[in-house]
């Protein structure tokens, strides 16, 4: 029984189709990397998964529930920018992951204290405990993205959507973010969708790599057709399936 089911999804803005005939099923706990040319609709696909937008046709269903009509607690998201609240300190941003669902959006009394303690644990895990009382604007890009991921995870979503989360980071910081994400995933067994422009990153982190592209192309009107999933790679074992059955490969060992 698949966990995320995308059935025959079309999305157009005005008369312009962006994505068309997207069908995909994903099991719980899978890590899906999404790659494709700029502007082909990867972010649009994530917005549909998030229920930030409703597809013009087709449906997205998670855990067998009816298609959602607005974003909710079951789907967490980390955008490339603007993912944390600038007016809250780093610690409060993590606390917000648990407290915004409450009536007044905050904890009171003993609850607040316990939530702060939990937040401090999370911050220690993210390597952000030394900046807990600062505002996000004073943090580097990598630290802000770690905070955003920590905040999204504090809400315990079943599906995590990442839109080029490491796009603006230097290669070194990227690598440590990969380790961070891999570690977190090992504990939570969430389903993850990650959009990236970095093929190496896509294959390293993903269990599957989906490629978005336009299957049909009208040279007179490049906008006439939308993109769809043209490839669906098995990315386990460094993108070389079935190798683990026999013996360790010596191909691609540089990675």
């Amino acid at each position: 029984m698949s966990f995320v089911t995308v059935t025959d999804v079309f999305q157009s803005y005005g008369a312009r189709p962006i994505i068309e005939r997207v069908n995909v099923t994903v099991d719980e706990g899978e890590f899906i990397s999404i790659v494709g040319a700029s502007g082909c609709g990867k972010s649009t696909f994530l917005r549909l998964l998030l229920a930030q937008e409703i597809p013009t046709r087709g449906s997205v269903s998670i855990a067998g529930a009816p298609p959602a009509t607005e974003p909710g607690l079951d789907r967490g998201v980390v955008f490339q920018r603007y993912s944390v609240f600038p007016h809250m300190t780093v610690r409060d941003n993590i606390v917000a992951g648990e407290s915004l669902r409450r009536g007044w959006g905050r904890f009171f009394g003993a609850g607040a204290k316990a939530a702060r303690a939990r937040a401090d644990d999370t911050l220690a895990r993210c390597g952000l405990d030394h900046v807990a009382d600062q505002y996000p604007a004073t943090l580097s890009g990598g630290m802000q993205q770690r905070l955003a991921i920590g905040q999204a995870l504090a809400a315990r979503p079943r599906v995590l959507l990442l839109d080029e989360p490491f796009g603006a980071l230097d290669p070194g910081t990227r690598l440590s973010m990969h380790d961070f994400l891999t570690e977190l995933r090992a504990e939570t067994s969430m389903t993850v969708f990650m959009v990236t422009h970095d093929l190496h990153e896509a294959f390293k982190l993903g269990d599957r790599v989906l490629v978005f592209d336009k299957p049909r192309w009208d040279p007179h009107d490049p906008n006439a057709y939308g993109a769809t999933i043209t490839y669906d790679f098995d990315a386990r074992n460094g993108g070389i399936p079935f190798q683990s059955l026999k013996e360790n490969t010596h191909v691609l060992q540089a990675n």
Binding site: P71, G76, R81, Y82, L100, R101, R102, Q151, A152
Partner: peptide, 18 residues
């Protein structure tokens, strides 16, 4: 206000009031 922040708040379960 960036749309991302409002969407983010919704994914953390915030109501319109919150």
């Amino acid at each position: 206000l960036p749309d991302e922040l409002l969407v983010k708040a919704q994914t953390l379960g915030a109501s319109s009031w919150v």
